[in-house]
Design a protein around this nucleic acid. Structure first.
Length: 417
DNA sequence: TCTGGGGTCCTAGGACCC
DNA sequence: TCTGGGGTCCTAGGACCC
C-alpha cells in the first residue's frame, strides 16, 4: 500500500528557543513576528490559555505578563538552521522528501497500516533524538489527508495513520473549514451552498463543484476522496518561483530617501539569495505600501520591471528598483512597508549567451563572491555595494531576540559541566 | 501608540489580434 | 439604427498556507 507521510514540528519556533534554554520546558513561551507585531508561535501552555495564533502582541501583552510568559522576537537564522537539521535527519530515514515549509515535509511510505505506524514511530524517535525538537507525523493516502492526520497525531501520541476505513467513518463529522486549503472565504461560500462537512462535498456533483469553486474545488474533492492527486507534486528540488524581501517600518513615512534606503537593503538581500542559489532573475517587482489597517490602504502599490538580461548583480537590480520607487512614490501617503520581489528565476549557468555582453562586468562574479563570503561570516552589512543602506531610520524593532546560538561564532551556546 | 514575512496558485479582465 | 466573436497573452490581485 502506498502512503503519504507529513512530518510537522510542534510549535516549531518555540521548540527552537527551548532547545537552548532547557529551563523553559513547561514554561509559557511565545515567539513574535518581525517588528514584534504578532504572536506567531505558542507553547502548549499558551494555547491552553486560549491565546490565538496571529494575535497582535499589544493586545495580549498584559495577559502574557500575568502568566510570566517568556517572550522572544523571531530569530530566523536559528530556525532555519534547526529546520535544516530536521530535514537532514528525515532524509537519513526516508531518502527523498518534499519540504513544504520551514517545519514541514512530505514523504512516501509503503506497507500495511500497522507497518507504517511502526515505521513512523521509529522516524519520530530518531529525529527527536538527533535534533531535539518534538515532531508529529500524519500518514494517509493523499497530502490533504496526511495533513488532516497530522492534526490528529498532535492530539494523540504524535503519530496517526488515517486508513480508508477510519476516514470514511469520520467524514460526516469533519467540517470542511478544518481542511487544508479551505480558508475563511471558501468555507463561508461552501456553507452558503449547503456544503458543511466532508461528506457534503464528496457527495456533491462534480460539475456543480467545478462551476462553484473551479479547479481548486474539483481537486479538493479528489484529495478528500483519497485519489492521489498530488497537488504539490512540483518536486522538492525544483527551483523556487520568486524570492522576496520586505519589511514593515517602525513608523510610517513619506520620506523618499528612507524608502530608497529600505529598497536598497531589500535588493541587497534578494540579490545575495539569488547568488547563493546560483540563480538569476528576469523580473523585479518593487512595492511600497501604507498600513493595511488605516484609511490609506488603497494607496500605494507595486510595479514590475523586466530585465533586459537576467541578473543577480546588486547594482543592476538596484538601478531598476530605485527607478521603480521613484515612479511609485506619491506625496502625502504614509508608507508603512517596502519590499522587493524577484521572479522568472533561472539557473545562472543556463543564462543565455549575451550578444552584446558588457565585458566590463566580467569581474562581477569575483567581487560578489568575496562580498557574500565576508557577509556570511561577519554579518550581512559588513560589506555593501552601490549604496550603504542606513538601517536606523526604518528597521524593525526586535526587543526580545535570543542569541544566534548556532550560526554566529560570538553567540555560541556555552556548556557548563 | 503598537496588527509579520515569505511563498504558491488561480482568476478576472484588459489589451491586442485576426 | 446598426456597430462580431473568439482567441491569446499579460498582469494585478485574491485566497490560502506556514
Amino acid at each position: 500500500m502506498e502512503w503519504v507521510g507529513l512530518l510537522d514540528c510542534n510549535n516549531f519556533f518555540v521548540s527552537c528557543e527551548r532547545l537552548f534554554r532547557p529551563d523553559l520546558q513547561k514554561r509559557p513561551t511565545v515567539v513574535l513576528s518581525s517588528n514584534d507585531g504578532c504572536v506567531v508561535a505558542r507553547s502548549p501552555e499558551i494555547k491552553a490559555l486560549g491565546i490565538p495564533m496571529g494575535v497582535p502582541y499589544f493586545k495580549v501583552k498584559n495577559e502574557l505578563a500575568a502568566h510570566h510568559t517568556e517572550v522572544f522576537s523571531s530569530n530566523f537564522p536559528l530556525y532555519r538552521d534547526i529546520s535544516r537539521r530536521v530535514m537532514d535527519s528525515l532524509g537519513g530515514c526516508v531518502g527523498t522528501y518534499e519540504q513544504y515549509s520551514v517545519d514541514e515535509a512530505f514523504f512516501k511510505l509503503t506497507g500495511t497500516d500497522e507497518e507504517v505506524l511502526q515505521r513512523s514511530h521509529t522516524i519520530k524517535k530518531k529525529i527527536e533524538q538527533e535534533v531535539g525538537v518534538p515532531i508529529s507525523i500524519g500518514v494517509a493516502h493523499t497530502k490533504t489527508l496526511a495533513k488532516f492526520a497530522n492534526g490528529l497525531a498532535k492530539k494523540e501520541s504524535g503519530v496517526y495513520v488515517l486508513g480508508n476505513e477510519k476516514w470514511v467513518q469520520q467524514q460526516p463529522s469533519v467540517p470542511l473549514s478544518q481542511i487544508w486549503g479551505v480558508g475563511r472565504q471558501t468555507a463561508q461560500k461552501m456553507q452558503d451552498h449547503g456544503l458543511c462537512t466532508v461528506t457534503d462535498l464528496l457527495t456533491a456533483d462534480r460539475s456543480r463543484i467545478d462551476a462553484l469553486f473551479g479547479i481548486a474545488g474539483v481537486r479538493l474533492q479528489a484529495e478528500l476522496a483519497g485519489t492521489h492527486n498530488d497537488r504539490l507534486s512540483r518536486s522538492g528540488s525544483q527551483i523556487q518561483q520568486s524570492i522576496m524581501s520586505s519589511r514593515s517600518f517602525k513608523d510610517a513615512t513619506n520620506d523618499i530617501t528612507i524608502l530608497e534606503n529600505a529598497i536598497a537593503y531589500h535588493v541587497g538581500e534578494v540579490a545575495a539569495e539569488l547568488r547563493s542559489l546560483q540563480a538569476v532573475c528576469g523580473s523585479l517587482n518593487v512595492h511600497i505600501l501604507p498600513s493595511r489597517h488605516g484609511e490609506w490602504l488603497l494607496r500605494g502599490g507595486s510595479q514590475e520591471s523586466l530585465l533586459v538580461r537576467p541578473s543577480s548583480d546588486t547594482r543592476v537590480l538596484l538601478t531598476e528598483a530605485l527607478a521603480l520607487v521613484r515612479e511609485l512614490w506619491e506625496k502625502d501617503v504614509p508608507y508603512k512597508k517596502a519590499g522587493v520581489v524577484v521572479s522568472l528565476i533561472s539557473d545562472a549557468s543556463t543564462k543565455q549567451l549575451e550578444l552584446f555582453a558588457d565585458t566590463k562586468r566580467d569581474d562581477t562574479a569575483a567581487v560578489f563572491k568575496v562580498m557574500d563570503i565576508v557577509n556570511g561570516r561577519f554579518g550581512k552589512s559588513a560589506l555593501t555595494i552601490g549604496r550603504v543602506p542606513s538601517h536606523s531610520n526604518w528597521q524593525a524593532s526586535r526587543q526580545f531576540c535570543s542569541p544566534r546560538y548556532t550560526t554566529n561564532w560570538t553567540e555560541l551556546a556555552t556548556v557548563k559541566a
